[in-house]
Amino acid sequence: MEPLSFFSQTRVLIVTGKGGTGKTTVCGVMANLAAREGLRALVVQVATASDRLEPETANLSHLFGRDEVLGYDEMALVTGPSGGEVRARALRPDTALVEYLHLHGMRRLSRRLVSTGALDVVATAVPGMPDMLVLGKVKQMERAAAAGSPGAPELIFLDAPAAGHAIRFLQSPHGLLEAASGGPVRSQAQEVVDMLSDPDRCQAVLVTTPEETPVSETVETAQLLEDRAGIKLCAVVVNARLPVLPLPEHLESAALSELAAGAGVTLAPSELESLIVAGKLRLERQGAQAAQVVRLAEELPLPQLELPFCFSADLGPDQLSTLTDALGRSVAGWQPVELP
């Protein structure tokens, strides 16, 4: 599939998965690929009411070689060819509440209310409300994107909370629909539900690493997302998979010494040991990861995209570029699957 057709499936891609599997990285990489294709992409990082996320919000910009912490205002991270770009911002429940109060004629009071802990009061009385307000804001951006408003993005990536929280977060408008009998909040919740359940407007991408626990949790999350939040799943990204090397199965020093001697090299015992120990680790990991990829495919009938593990402890622009190339190749070889 062409990357451009991949990205034209929908307007909001909700990226979620177990904590630490690479949601933020995948948002950055996908947005970067979209920008290379000339699209205006916006990454939105969200915090839930029960989750305060300050220092983390620098991770995304770091990937693009910047170190500013994301805030409410959009920040341009990169510009691509023919108008493509990646912008990013962070949305928090307290600012969403302020905005909501503003829009409903409580401008003068909103800031003070929020600074005195009104968010806690609201979250306690109506737990889904702060999360729903954040989603309401996303919906507003999606509407602007649909209308092609000036300055609006064409594609929105939502760097959503980790799996467990994500379900609660995305379910919040459904809960409010049941609780609220009328008024502006109910209509807002209805509009958010409409967006979440319309695959032309919004779909979810699940991120996992090819390890046992993340794969198991991904399968569970997939079901919950569809059943409880009514969101269509678009793809699962297998992140940080070790590139498969054609290593010999049997690693014995005698055989290796002989092969090295054939190339005119005498390997010291420590060198042989390194080659063997590292080789065994890689074989073991590669094998285990391959097994998890197969299990994931069996248990979750979704198209898989794959991103390689980067041999680095610090992902910056170089790794972003490598990963974006890899995603492009993975998307190109991707067959949309008609699910039963």
């Binding site: 090397l245 054609p246 290593l247 010999p248 690693l251 290796l256 092969l259 090295a260 054939g262 190339a263 005119g264 090299v265 390997l267 010291a268 420590s270 060198e271 040991e273 390194s274 080659l275 590292a278 080789g279 890689r282």
Partner: peptide, 22 residues
């Protein structure tokens, strides 16, 4: 423990290449 630079170069292609790359 790393390979010596010489070994690394001379084994970079050939049957041990994947092990060296790893």
């Amino acid at each position: 423990a790393p390979l010596s630079a010489g070994a690394q170069n001379r084994l970079a292609d050939g049957p041990l290449a994947p092990l060296v790359a790893n």
